[in-house]
């Protein structure tokens, strides 16, 4: 008996799903394109929520457990929404030797947010990077997509405070 595949529709009519759908189709909805598909969802939505994981599982005919397993295995994927602003602190060896840990500690003291978390008000996410490959500029951070070289705590914190104030 041939089962008629039901049409699986995206979780919402958000236009961004069309882009994700293109990625899925380009790879023939094959299971081995799971990582590519998750990259596409995260690129457009910023993170992977439960609905997205369910949808991807259904579209690629994979068990949800497998999709969840892959999404949680790789550090690049995040299952939580990011704050309005992001500050990525490079934690590669060169940056570590040159004081990245102090940056992280000082951010924690000022904003009460740990690495990988978002402030209560959803304003700022502090993320760690294994290595930005900007070792010549250590310690390096990326604030809202802009790389900053040879950073010290004081300038970084006042910059982050500035971001919050700009929005207020």
């Amino acid at each position: 008996m041939i089962m008629q595949a039901e049409k699986i529709s995206p979780p919402s009519d958000d236009k961004r799903w069309k882009v994700v759908e293109t990625t899925i189709r380009r790879n023939g909805a094959s299971a081995d394109a799971l990582i590519e598909t998750l990259h596409s969802v995260q690129e457009w939505f910023g993170y992977l929520d439960d609905d997205a994981l369910r949808y991807v599982a259904a579209r690629l005919t994979l068990p949800l457990s497998k999709v969840y397993g892959v999404a949680t295995f790789y550090h690049f994927f995040t299952l939580k929404p990011q704050g309005k602003h992001t500050c990525v602190v490079c934690n590669g060896t060169a940056c570590y030797i040159k004081g990245a840990k102090k940056l992280i500690d000082d951010i924690h003291d000022r904003f009460d947010v740990k690495l990988g978390e978002t402030t209560q008000d959803g304003q700022l996410s502090v993320l760690g990077a294994r290595c930005l490959g900007a070792c010549g500029l250590a310690p390096a951070v990326v604030v809202d997509g802009e790389v900053q070289a040879n950073v010290d705590s004081q300038t970084l914190i006042s910059q982050l405070e500035g971001l919050e104030n700009d929005d207020a």
């Binding site: 934690n91 060896t93 570590y96 294994r130 290595c131 490959g133 900007a134």
Partner: peptide, 11 residues
């Protein structure tokens, strides 16, 4: 997939 922190040759 240059994962070694502190290496950027391949990149």
């Amino acid at each position: 997939d240059e994962g070694d922190p502190g290496a950027f040759m391949d990149r």
